[in-house]
Amino acid sequence: MSGASWEDLGVRIGSGAAMIAVGLGAVWLGGDWFHVLIAVICGVMVWELVCMLDTGRTRSPYVLAGVAFVAALAAIELPPAFALPLLMFPSLLGLSRMERGEATFAIFAALILLAGYGMMDLRDDFGLVWMLWLVMVVVVTDVAGYFAGRAIGGPKLWPRVSPKKTWSGTVAGWAGAALVGLLFAKSTAAGYGLAGISVAVSMASQIGDIAESAIKRRAGVKDSSSLIPGHGGLMDRFDGMLGAALFIVIAGQIADFPPGAP
């Protein structure tokens, strides 16, 4: 293994530690602190999405990011019947303001805002423990996949879209997520089936990661932006959380979630 494979590790760990500290602080505090953080993340990701898809427009990224921020922040204060159309509005606005990538933007902007709403709802309704579980599943999936992929290597998962992702890293992510599920099962009333749910959430987070890679491949860029040293942009870091949160929103309509919650 070459030293170049690990040359970005120090910067990556430092930036990651800062993000984890801010994120865990907001998760711990909950309420408006968490709502504002998620709304900011949604707004920035929409900004990055526009910049990748429609490079010819100078004002649209800021306009759409601002609208997404307001929509995400306001929606959590409204009943779902009124929150949902508000969350969809930035997607429709993008259709009128963008010259390229409008359809892709409309779909992914809607997914970003729905995922943000789902995370806020999860923290508000089910509390700190279940939000921490979701965060830990996604983080452990990413970390286990990163180190296993670098250390073991092997066959690529989807080389045409994400040439660095390997099956070894993917499976390591599942194993790490299952371990997180088992640890939380022992401390909650969820039961050991939570390990399987955690693996499914891990898979959803990996799909979110790959979907963002497909957008970057289409846009011809390496990172969604350069906001975070060693990590690229917020979409590069929160793509997995996007997929995981959307899975929770969908799974919650099919089966009781969180399992064992009162």
Rank of each mutant, 00 (worst) to 15 (best):
D54I: 04
F89K: 03
V44K: 01
C51D: 13
I41N: 06
T55H: 14
P80F: 02
W47I: 08
Y62L: 12
L49G: 04
P90C: 12
L86I: 11
T55R: 15
M52T: 06
V63Y: 13
L37V: 13
A75T: 08
M88H: 06
A72E: 10
F69H: 08
E77H: 15
V63A: 09
R57V: 11
F69A: 07
A83P: 01
L64G: 01
T55K: 15
C42G: 03
L92N: 08
A65Q: 06
S91T: 04
L92F: 15
L73R: 15
I76K: 00
A74N: 07
F69P: 00
A65C: 09
L37R: 11
G56T: 05
L53R: 01
R57S: 15
L37S: 04
P90N: 09
V70A: 13
G43D: 03
P79I: 09
E48R: 07
R57Y: 10
F69M: 10
V44S: 00
L84D: 03
V40K: 13
P79V: 13
C42S: 11
S60Q: 13
P80Q: 11
A39G: 08
V46M: 15
A81M: 10
L86S: 08
L49M: 14
V40P: 07
A74W: 05
T55S: 15
I76A: 02
P90A: 10
D54F: 02
M52D: 07
T58M: 12
V50P: 07
S91Y: 03
C51W: 15
A65D: 02
P80K: 01
G66I: 02
Y62H: 14
A81K: 09
L84K: 03
A74I: 01
Y62V: 12
L73F: 15
T58S: 15
A39Y: 06
R59T: 10
A75G: 10
G43H: 03
S91G: 12
L73M: 14
Y62C: 10
F82Y: 14
F82T: 06
L37C: 11
A65V: 02
A83R: 00
S60L: 06
M45K: 05
L87R: 00
D54V: 02
I41A: 15
Y62G: 10
F82H: 09
L92G: 15
F89P: 02
A81D: 09
R59M: 14
